[in-house]
Design a protein around this nucleic acid. Structure first.
Length: 586
DNA sequence: GCCGTTTTCGGCCCGACTGTTTTCAGTCG
């Protein structure tokens, strides 16, 4: 469910791109800023307008008279004329084209004017035909990069980020739960396993009917009628009494299955997968002379289990395992000897060590972030603003860091007065420069509670240089954490080249903590690397990298990823109490 | 186009990198 805020934000991003094509300075940034603000707004902009009119819109930071008028226009007419006027001049799908790494508005405009390229399809065709390289300002390499960018996009297209999907899932689940016909409901498939990207969604439901175990047509039909006629459905792929498939306006496909109550557990197990996990589980059933299907566990023709997952696994003499572990990566063997690790849980997390405040151009003050952290029942929050190398992110210099420290000290003494255990730590997200040095002097790092270092430039270095660069940063005694260690951006950019086993050995030697970044498009480290780190005895920290107080809630995404990597509480340092954590960082 | 304890006009969003050039444009964070 794309809400109105993000719809308008997307239009503003496009307007910004069209303005950039015309070499207009500053105005595009105003639109981008407004878009960013809209996206992170708690409240629906339509409601703000209803309650306070245009004046209320203008109170939102980054939104002035002109942009408020455009929002008003959109709310009233569903369109923004200014956008159409701009698009008429260069009628291209700028949003799609700029998704290709290395393609921006200027190049898109040139390609439209010289080759008539309007969308991704045109771009691929012309690039493959070698039409782009000969153009002035382009060349062989650019053409090759464009093709690479397109193939990367294709690889991930049609898949959605877990972080975008979860809110949709809980919204749909809420709607279905309201139906009186429905008894049990669960999401299955890759989303239940919390995979980082999701193809489509499966919902399983059972019907509330105590006398008749098999769903009657009428109840099932009522559910399906409701499902296919929800307001955001744009296509119905199929509709029957046990299964219906729809597409939402966001492009997401959802299946809804009605299953018999007595098969609910079996169906849940089956549709949760993974396929590989299921194949192995069925083999175990077969070896015991049983048959496992989505309808139940059978001995001959007699059904001996199926009501719940736990019951099925129990009869198969296996420990029940969290869906995140069901990838046939060794969990089955451990489950059979009842030795599964107890993986970390959201409730184990005691604080967040990576978030950005107003100091580096973020949205919220340190106090606002702290209040949100308190709501989440955290014991501490680490502020880690960008440092000076990242000028665009208003990176802090040594002087500003010491000013910030004063603010944090003051805040902490207020917490002390209020008899609150909660504390704010001062960190910083420093930059690992091309040669592996840090952009902030050691004397300043020393005064912080801890320092994070991350790569924010020169992503395309060769493997050896990149590895050495990161290891050099790890050797700095004040650098405790490496943020987003592989630099990938889901659906956009691959990991940078790095010798990961070597990084792990160095992390172990220098006691550097690797971050599991919870940002929806990062989730970096990924599940596989988390598992490697755990096995190498390297400690990790689950951080959000929040740039807005609401984003502190991304924490669960990082925890899910950690669970997929089998991380336990002891592997994750921000499960420690305040005292123990501080001691660990010193 | 937005903003303002440097306030109603004149600043903002800079610097590195890449790939293309032969002095620079476009992209990215």
């Amino acid at each position: 469910m794309k809400n109105i805020n993000s719809k308008i934000a997307n239009l503003f991003y496009e307007i910004a791109n069209f303005l950039k094509m015309e070499e207009i300075s500053f105005k595009p940034f105003a639109y981008e800023r407004a878009a960013l603000t809209l996206e992170s707004l708690d409240e629906d902009v339509g409601r703000i307008y209803e309650q306070g009119g245009k004046k209320a819109l203008e109170k939102i930071p980054g939104i002035g008279k002109s942009i408020a008028e455009k929002i008003e226009e959109y709310l009233k007419t569903g369109e923004i004329k200014y956008y159409h006027k701009l698009k008429k001049k260069v009628p291209i799908d700028i949003e799609e084209l700029t998704r290709v790494e290395g393609m921006g508005p200027k190049r898109a405009k040139i390609l439209y004017e010289k080759l008539g390229i309007k969308n991704l399809k045109d771009l691929e065709k012309k690039a493959k035909a070698g039409k782009i390289a000969p153009l002035f300002g382009f060349g062989e390499k650019t053409e090759k990069n464009i093709l690479q960018g397109i193939s990367f996009l294709k690889k991930s297209s049609g898949r959605f980020l877990l972080g975008e999907i979860l809110p949709i899932v809980s919204e749909i689940e809420k709607r279905l739960r309201n139906l009186k016909e429905i008894n049990e409901i669960s999401v299955a498939g890759s989303i239940r396993r919390k995979k980082e990207t999701i193809g489509d969604i499966d919902f399983l439901v059972t019907i509330k009917e105590f006398k008749k175990p098999i769903p009657t047509r009428s109840s099932a039909e009522k559910i399906m009628d409701f499902f296919v006629s929800m307001k955001d459905v744009i296509k119905v792929w199929g509709k029957g009494p046990t299964k219906s498939s729809i597409r939402l306006e966001s492009g997401l496909d959802i299946d809804l299955r009605v299953v018999p109550q007595k098969s609910y557990g079996a169906a849940l197990q089956y549709f949760t997968g993974s396929k590989e996990h299921n194949i192995e589980t069925r083999k175990i059933a077969m070896d015991m002379g049983l048959k496992l299907s989505e309808y139940g566990l059978f001995k001959g023709r007699k059904m001996i289990a199926g009501r719940s997952e736990k019951e099925i696994y129990r009869i198969l003499k296996m420990q029940w395992m969290p869906p995140e572990m069901r990838e046939n990566q060794g969990e089955i063997e451990l489950a059979r000897v009842y030795k599964l690790p107890k993986i970390v849980e959201v409730s184990d997390i005691k604080g967040d060590l990576h978030c950005h405040s107003k100091w580096d151009g973020g949205v919220n003050s340190i106090l606002e972030l702290s209040e949100e952290a308190l709501k989440m029942e955290y014991k501490y929050l680490g502020i880690s603003d960008h440092t000076k190398f990242l000028r665009i992110e208003h990176g802090l210099n040594e002087k500003q860091l010491s000013l910030q420290k004063k603010e944090i000290d003051k805040l902490n003494s207020e917490f002390r007065i209020q008899d609150s255990e909660f504390r704010v730590f001062q960190g910083a997200e420093t930059n690992i420069l091309k040669d592996g040095s840090i952009d902030i002097k050691d004397e300043a790092l020393k005064k912080l509670d801890y320092a994070i270092a991350g790569i924010h430039s020169s992503f395309k270095m060769r493997k050896k240089e990149m590895t050495d660069r990161i290891i050099k940063a790890m050797k700095n005694p004040y650098i405790k954490i490496i943020s987003h260690p592989t630099g990938r951006i889901l659906k956009k950019r691959d990991e940078y080249q790095v010798d990961f086993p070597k990084i792990l050995r160095a992390a172990k030697e220098f006691k550097t903590v690797l971050e599991i970044n919870s940002y929806p498009e990062r989730l970096d480290l990924n599940d596989n690397k988390i598992r490697q780190a755990k096995e190498a005895g390297v400690k990790m920290v689950i951080n959000t990298d929040a740039h807005h107080k609401n984003q502190l809630h991304y924490m669960e995404l990082g925890v899910f990823q950690a669970r997929r990597g089998w991380a336990e509480k002891k592997d994750i340092i921000n499960t420690k109490s305040q005292d123990k954590l501080l001691k660990y960082l010193k």
